[in-house]
Amino acid sequence: MLKATDIWFKNSNRYLLQSINFEVKSGEVLSVLGANGAGKSTLLKNISGELHPHKGSILFKNKPLSAWKNHELARQRGVLSQHYQVSLPFTSFQIAMMGRYPHFKNHPLPIDHDIVKQCLHFSGIEHLADRNYLTLSGGEQQRVQIARVLAQLWDDASTDKLLLLDEPVSALDIQYQHHIMQLVRKLAARGFAVISVVHDLNLALQYSNRILLLKNGKQVAFGDTGLLNKQHIKEVYGVASELVAHPVENRKYIIITE
């Protein structure tokens, strides 16, 4: 669905991304991993269209990303960031309804109302629909934003949408971290492609099929989650680790040993 070839991005004479290559297909969850400052967010911004690479090509649905019109792209690709600065007292429902903005002109249709209700239900916050967003806790606010991004991409006719997540669960407690990541898996099962920046390596192993490892703007590894080893972790994060068999699931579990 999205194919990036030889992406270079420069910011005031310093390369923040150097020759990044990866691809994500419908139904896949790709986790972008790396230490702080590795270029994860910069890469995500290049994919979302907020920044433009200086060299290389990004194809989205076989069409160069730069050739997409902004409002067309908005129906195919949603972005969830880590922080939202909302200063006016909108309700959760109104915020979630903003996800439908690319789909209606001036007034929301009954279907838009239905979809927003479903998405609030999906994120488990329908009881907060009429609450003032500003009075919610950080975790609740993030779930409202997730409902908004879901509403943006919710479409029964086609399910091959791209979802970009920039540290989506960093502000949430363990229950909702997993709740949201399971949601992400469900979306992938419907045909979504997901690219997610995550910090928790075990969360990445548990919920994604593919990983992209970055260090200082350079690509260290890209491939199936199974390929992650302790040399990678030493190189990228500078810590020693052991990979042990997960007691329940058929996958590895990472323990940091120093």
Binding site: E50, V79, M98
Partner: peptide, 13 residues
């Protein structure tokens, strides 16, 4: 209100 970047992500010019 979502910020300029996020508004652009939902198709606002």
């Amino acid at each position: 209100v979502l910020g300029e970047t996020n508004a652009a992500h939902i198709g606002i010019n």
